[in-house]
């Protein structure tokens, strides 16, 4: 049996974390959660994932900073897919995420089926 896909979700909204946890767990993914970019980096120091899904607007370290740190680091996370999940729809921010090394961009509110399909596309 295949190992489940491991996902780290990074979002400062507890409500959004709960929704993501429900939506992704229901699809059989293994989900860990962090509340901002720094908490994500801490967690990733000791853990492996197949995919990071991150919000943009967060305290301490935002989604852009998180992507830059992961892409600029020397860990296995450097090459992992990172999908942005945000309420932002500005072209400028999307371009910035892309330039920083994001793999994809999803605008909230998210549709659980489309999200799960995206997870499978970037991890398989």
């Amino acid at each position: 049996m295949n190992k489940p896909t491991r996902i780290l979700t990074v979002d400062d909204s507890a409500s959004m974390r709960a929704l993501l946890l429900n939506a992704l767990s229901a699809e059989g993914f293994e989900v860990a959660q962090a509340e901002d970019g720094l908490a994500a980096l801490d967690w990733l120091e000791g853990n492996e994932v197949d995919l990071v899904i991150t919000d943009i607007n967060m305290p301490r370290l935002d989604g852009f900073g998180l992507i830059e740190q992961l892409r600029g680091g020397n860990t296995s996370h450097r090459n992992r897919p990172i999908v942005v999940l945000t309420t932002e729809s500005s072209e400028e921010k999307r371009a910035r995420a892309r330039a920083a090394g994001a793999t994809g961009w999803i605008v909230k509110p998210f549709n659980p089926e489309k999200l799960a399909a995206a997870v499978r596309r970037v991890t398989y």
Partner: peptide, 21 residues
């Protein structure tokens, strides 16, 4: 089926993010 723009959980985040932006 999912969250759409009529739900508080979405509109709270939109409001906070726009305030911060």
């Amino acid at each position: 089926a999912g969250v759409d723009e009529h739900y508080g959980v979405y509109l709270m985040e939109v409001l906070i993010n726009e305030m911060i932006a």
